[in-house]
Design a protein around this nucleic acid. Structure first.
Length: 884
RNA sequence: GGGUCGUUAGCUCAGUUGGUUAGAGCGCUACGUUGACAUCGUAGAGGUCGGCGGUUCGAAUCCGCCACGACCCACCA
């Protein structure tokens, strides 16, 4: 069977994914008794399609869970989706309109919710299907949905508990109202954007008495929202403001309505802003509401839930709030009350979802009192019950906890968890507000009606780490085994929406932090650093990338780019890196494969009993790399770990090891060499598997035939035994590498044709080196085109040679006739200059008394070694230079 | 107004608790293709680590200020 020269991911990825799932290899066993390791997948919206953020976090989570699985943990990665209240309701409403020209009210609540469920069943698993393309080893048998039975129970239970504890309350307050989605939203769902607007200066006529007292006909206020004038119930100034001292206690007439309201004083007012006088509109501004509360002001609401002016707005009733703004401004102008209009840029709150300008609106809503929950979270954070990676997010988290505000959890939507609250009704069916409501999952009494509102989507998400495991049943097998979870992987963009709330919810409801570590990834951005979004149409579709480069390549590149929470500016070309690496890996396999006998059975364990320097060096490199990789992984430096594995495979294994064991063209590799190379390669493949699962599993099974129980996904992760058995040999090999590079360099610099052999003479620094080099002369012969190689401690520099000094030994390449003496002189001189500079800096340190006194001994020792090594090399180079 | 992050090679970025006269990939230059791999190999060029000051024997790394860029939070009409 011939193996293609280039690696083709398409032909194998689906095959292995099926193999893993068919054999239940992602499934976790709650009774294995092994130490558990749990990751909860942040549930994507059912409406969603896989985007680069998912791909990045999916790659990270899968890599971690695969490592832990190979390390012998009972590894559970639990997937699922979020019902995503508003988002999903909107999508279904849109399709309803498009296909049937109906809105949700035409259907009625029950029918509509049925439709959403239908939609969910039809499209809800698209995104999880897309996740699979990436190779994610989630336990699909445990997949959950935020509105499935168990999670709904958890949501209701939580509401009932918190209500019982007095932490959930109902109240009539100003909330952020979205006129498009016709629901309240939380503060976190409001974005503040800069908008160009105007500041209108308006004269409010004073009452006769006030006019007389002050000697003025008007008081001038400045406002950005003239349409709310009909809702004004006071004018307010600063009590310290002498300009208005006489005005306080007086009365003004509200323009357009003529209603009389008091002039009051409040510290809140900043005298330097505008005119120093503020119109107070308690129904439509949070600050004004607060002032109103302090001064017992009347509250007049003139805006409806759809953003239009209501009947209390008088002549403006029925107009949209922005049309009303223009109209009122015009009217004021006509009435001669408009003093001036200035351009003004201010921050406007818009709905994060619809982009509509938020209207602060007074309404009955349910809230969670967050302060007590935040208090626990702060303490737990201080006690180290959870750790952020990178750490800086902890202070961000703390700041948020310290300034937490109550959470509006009711939404005026149909799609979501119904609030488990029931009201008594009157004979006509209307809610009887004279009687208390009852909190209950089931209808407590015939004739009672349930609160029509649903809960914020995040009210189910914040329970995700434990509701998915069976909570509130604390005896549930999965809950007992897998909770608390080990690490949460998420982007920082939902730190406040989700991560903080999970910590608070987990601590309060289960008494434990829901996860030990929080690994915050950066945000994937486009080439220019902009967030990827539909509106900018700058998104890159991960599925297209997988199609183009292969899942392993996409994973590789994402993880290498994912450095410690740094945002990722994504250039599609970056994926070539991963693709090329996969191809390299593939061809290393091809090389071994062509020398493997299909019938031969190779030993199952690496035989380290070898006198061969190349083997010993390679084994040493593997030891060093595993140790370094383990250290990186313990701190979630996946990028560093992967780069090291990349270097080990490409530079050490392919460029040196394979080049050295590769036989001459047409010859075959001997059995022992193949055996050892296969074993070494298998270690590397095991190291790489969690990062690039498909190609490694394919190679793993191509190297030998394996039982299902021997699949790579369940194989052992290479262990660092703590030592580096062949460290000394490694250093000798490195010297040889340097010598070879310098010979190659001479050849290239002196334009020696590739086909031409050169003689090489090495004058070793000492007998031991000479002996060691002689024993390994085959390495030179293999890697550079050498006619003859003389090694001794006494050799003279042949006439007309180019030279190099490596670790105290001299390498001469006689090139009579070819050598350009001038060039050679300059080459050596440049090296002398370089070493002189280096030596100077070393000497500066060693000559510095304070350095000698303060620097750690090992650092001083290292400098000494540097000096003596450099001096030896330098001296030899200078001699050569003098001779030239 | 408060806070966070970034500024390192032409480009995109690594650089761990201060101790290598700073690394990778791409790009570039030269040479190389019956040979595992041109999605490749060999050799090479290219950086006063944004600026200024400080701490230190020693700073890309720690501290302060400044410049530029990005983001988060905040009730100034």
């Amino acid at each position: 069977m011939s193996i293609p020269k280039t690696y083709d991911p398409k032909s194998i990825e689906d095959k292995w994914y099926r193999y893993w799932t068919d054999n239940g290899m992602f499934r976790a066993d709650s009774r294995s008794g092994k130490e558990p390791f749990t990751i909860m997948m942040p549930p994507p919206n059912v409406t969603g399609a896989l985007h680069m953020g998912h791909a990045l976090q999916g790659a990270v989570q899968d890599t971690i869970i695969r490592i832990k699985r190979m390390q012998g943990y009972e590894a559970l990665w639990l997937p699922g989706t979020d019902h995503a209240g508003i988002a999903t309701q909107n999508v279904v409403e849109k399709s309803l309109k498009k296909e049937h020209k109906l809105n949700r009210h035409d259907l009625g609540r029950e029918k509509f919710v049925e439709k959403v469920w239908e939609w969910k069943h039809k499209y809800g698993d698209i995104i999880t299907g897309q996740y699979r393309k990436l190779g994610t080893s989630c336990d699909w048998s445990r997949e959950r949905f935020t509105m499935d039975e168990g999670l709904s129970e958890a949501v209701q239970e939580t509401f009932i508990r918190l209500h019982g504890q007095g932490l959930i309350y109902k109240g009539n307050y100003l909330v952020n109202w979205c006129p498009t989605d016709m629901t309240a939203i939380s503060d976190e769902e409001v974005d503040h954007v800069e908008r160009k607007g105007h500041l209108w200066y308006v004269n409010y006529p004073l009452s006769e008495a006030t006019a007389k007292k002050t000697g003025q006909p008007f008081i001038t206020i400045a406002t950005t929202r003239p349409e709310t004038i009909p809702a004004d119930t006071a004018v307010c100034v600063n009590p310290e403001d002498e300009r208005y001292a006489d005005f306080v206690g007086g009365e003004v007439e509200i323009p357009t309505t003529g209603r009389r309201v008091p002039i009051i004083a409040d510290e809140y007012i900043k005298p330097e802003f505008g005119t120093g006088a503020l119109k107070v509109t308690p129904a439509h501004d949070q600050n004004d509401f607060d002032i109103g509360t302090r001064h017992n002001l009347q509250v007049i609401n003139i805006i409806s839930k759809d953003g239009s002016m209501n009947e209390s707005a008088g002549a403006y009733a029925g107009l949209d709030r922005f049309d009303a703004r223009a109209k009122i401004a015009g009217d004021l102008d006509e009435m001669g009350l408009l003093v001036k209009v200035e351009d003004y840029v201010n921050q406007v709150g818009v709905s994060g979802r619809s982009g509509t300008v938020i209207e602060p609106l007074l309404s009955d809503q349910w809230f969670v009192n967050m302060k007590p929950l935040a208090q626990k979270a702060l303490e737990a954070g201080r006690n180290g019950e959870f750790t952020f990676y990178p750490q800086r997010w902890e202070s961000e988290f703390n700041r948020w906890m310290e300034n937490i505000r109550d959470w509006v959890i009711s939404r005026q939507l149909w799609w979501g968890h119904r609030i488990p609250v029931w009201y008594y009704t009157r004979a006509d069916g209307s809610v009887d507000e004279t009687k208390d409501y009852v909190v209950s999952i089931d209808r407590p009494e015939e004739g009672m009606v349930q609160d029509p509102d649903v809960l914020d989507t995040w009210f189910s998400s914040w329970l995700w780490p434990f509701s998915t495991l069976g909570w509130p049943d604390e005896k549930a097998e999965d809950y007992k085994t897998f909770y608390p979870t080990s690490v949460l992987v998420s982007g920082y963009d939902i730190l406040f929406f989700w991560i903080s709330r999970m910590i608070m919810g987990g601590l309060h409801l289960t008494g434990r932090s829901p996860f030990r570590d929080v690994f915050m990834t950066g945000i994937v951005r486009d080439k220019q650093g902009r967030k990827m979004s539909k509106s900018l149409n700058n998104g890159i579709d991960p599925l297209e990338l997988i199609d183009q480069y292969g899942a392993d390549a996409v994973r590789y590149s994402l993880i290498v780019l994912c450095a410690q929470g740094q945002d990722i500016k994504l250039d599609p070309r970056r994926f070539e890196m991963g693709r090329n690496f996969a191809n390299k890996l593939w061809n290393a396999f091809r090389l071994l494969h062509m020398h493997m006998d299909e019938k031969e059975s190779y030993s199952t364990e690496l035989n380290t009993d070898t006198g061969n320097l190349t083997d010993r060096w390679m084994i040493s490199r593997i030891h060093q790399t595993i140790a370094a990789v383990e250290d990186d992984l313990s701190r979630y430096r996946l990028n560093e770990a992967l780069m090291k594995i990349y270097g080990l495979l490409w530079d050490d294994f392919c460029d040196w090891y394979l080049e050295l064991i590769k036989p001459e063209y047409g010859e075959t590799m001997d059995r022992e060499t193949v055996d050892r190379a296969v074993n070494i390669y298998e270690i590397l493949v095991r190291l790489l598997h969690p990062f690039m699962p498909f190609i490694t599993e394919e190679i793993w099974h191509s190297l030998r035939s394996r039982e299902v129980s021997e699949a790579l996904i369940r194989a052992d992760w290479p262990v660092n035994t703590g030592g580096d058995p062949f460290g000394e040999d490694g250093r000798l090999f490195t010297t040889i590498q340097r010598m070879i590079s310098s010979i190659r360099n001479i050849r290239a610099e002196m334009n020696v044709p590739d086909s031409q052999e050169v003689a090489v003479v090495i004058k070793a620094r000492d007998q031991a080196t000479a002996k060691a080099l002689s024993e390994n002369r085959v390495i030179f012969e293999k890697l550079v085109k050498i006619g003859s190689l003389g090694i001794s401690t006494t050799a003279d520099r042949p006439k007309g040679s180019a030279s190099a000094v490596v670790d105290g030994s001299q390498v001469f390449v006689p090139l009579s006739g070819i050598i350009d003496v001038e060039k050679e002189r300059e080459r050596i001189a440049a090296e002398v200059r370089r070493l002189n500079g280096f030596l100077k800096s070393v000497n500066a340190k060693l000559g510095n008394e304070k350095f000698m006194a303060n620097a750690p001994e090992e650092v001083v020792e290292r400098e000494h070694k540097k000096r003596s090594d450099t001096e030896i090399n330098l001296e030899k180079l200078k001699t050569i230079l003098a001779e030239l």
